[in-house]
Simulated scan of single mutants.
Amino acid sequence: MVDIIDGTENVSVHGIFNWILLLAIFSIITAIGNYIGYQHPMTDSLIGMGILSLITLVGVWMERELPFNISSIIYISVIGIVLAFPSMPTSAPLLHYVSQVELLSIVTVFLAYVGIGMGKSWDEFKALGWRAIIITILVIASTYLGSAVVAHIILTLTGVPA
């Protein structure tokens, strides 16, 4: 069985269709979670997820089509920052709709997808052994700690009390 998105697909009609399908399913489930868990309007959440999905799709396309060896997360971040920059005409509507999407709703759907993926390759995961679990925990903890340190420094430099 072929994965919907395995990271090796070229930019083709089939590959783009798979990304759109995955992002649409992801967006609908996240919007439902926003509505149930946070009482955000379903239409605003869907529009917000549509914006995030479009930015993601463009970033993935740029990673695969541009001749630079740059990760799609960099492209996605830069596109989002530029579109949300206060002097951009896209800033106000983008911030309104994207603010209707709660991070925990996105993370919940993403972790469910990862869990399904892990279930499909459980034998491969078991072959990695206990060392992989320790490394995974250390990577997640280090990422969290690093993010907290950077956030604290930025908040301190901007005068926000910590």
Rank of each mutant, 00 (worst) to 15 (best):
T56V: 07
G115T: 01
Y75V: 00
D6M: 03
I116L: 12
M88N: 10
I16N: 01
D44T: 03
H14Y: 03
K120F: 08
E63M: 15
V60G: 04
I51F: 00
I76T: 14
R131C: 04
G48S: 05
Y144W: 14
N34F: 03
D44E: 14
L111Y: 06
V58F: 08
L128A: 12
T90F: 15
I140C: 09
K120W: 07
L57I: 06
V98C: 03
S99Y: 06
T158M: 06
L52C: 02
V101F: 04
W19L: 10
L46I: 02
Y144H: 11
P89G: 03
L83T: 03
A148N: 07
K126Q: 12
I5C: 05
H152V: 04
L138I: 12
L23R: 05
T136N: 08
P41R: 15
I29N: 04
G119H: 08
M42S: 01
Q39H: 10
T90P: 00
S147Y: 14
I36E: 09
G59F: 10
A24Y: 09
T156S: 15
G48A: 01
I74W: 10
I154Y: 13
L145I: 04
P41N: 15
V109C: 03
P161W: 11
I106M: 08
L46F: 09
M118A: 08
I73P: 04
F26I: 06
V139H: 06
G48Q: 04
A151G: 04
L23I: 05
V58A: 08
W19I: 01
L23S: 11
E65C: 14
S91A: 15
G59W: 07
A148I: 07
E124I: 10
W130T: 13
Y75W: 14
W130M: 12
N10C: 01
I32W: 05
W61M: 12
G33F: 15
L66S: 07
L145T: 09
W130L: 14
Y144V: 14
G146N: 09
T143K: 13
T136P: 00
V109F: 09
N10E: 15
T158F: 09
R131A: 05
D123L: 12
S87E: 06
V82Y: 05
I70E: 01
G59I: 02
P161K: 15
S72C: 13
I32F: 09
L52S: 03
D44I: 00
S71W: 13
I133W: 01
G159H: 09
L46R: 07
P89A: 08
V114L: 11
I140P: 04
P67L: 12
I36K: 13
H152M: 12
I28V: 13
L94I: 15
P67M: 12
I16S: 06
